[in-house]
């Protein structure tokens, strides 16, 4: 660990990206799919409501995008801090 300061900045940036991603992860599944469903009853998606769709299909698409965006941002971050393999 010669480059301590850089690696700490790298880790702090990583944790920030993780927290943002987890916030989206939570809002789409637990939020829209479960907790907010009754409040969003009015918004319909093909025969059911928005919350129902997020619970059965939508949240899975969001999970997918989240992982690939995370992988992409981390690859960029690795290079910026010179810690890539």
């Amino acid at each position: 660990m010669a480059d301590r300061t850089s690696s700490n900045a790298y880790w702090a940036a990583n944790v920030r990206i993780i927290l943002t991603s987890l916030a989206i992860w939570f809002i789409c599944s637990f939020g829209l799919g479960i907790i907010l469903r009754p409040a969003l009853k009015g918004m319909s998606v093909g025969g059911a409501d928005l919350g129902f769709w997020f619970a059965q299909n939508g949240s899975i698409y969001v999970f997918l995008v989240l992982i690939f965006v995370y992988a992409w941002r981390m690859n960029k971050l690795d290079k910026e801090h010179g810690v890539e393999e």
């Binding site: 660990m1 690696s7 010179g82 810690v83 890539e84």
Partner: peptide
């Protein structure tokens, strides 16, 4: 510390 960075 070492598992937190990909290098190596």
């Amino acid at each position: 510390e070492s598992i937190r960075v990909p290098r190596g």
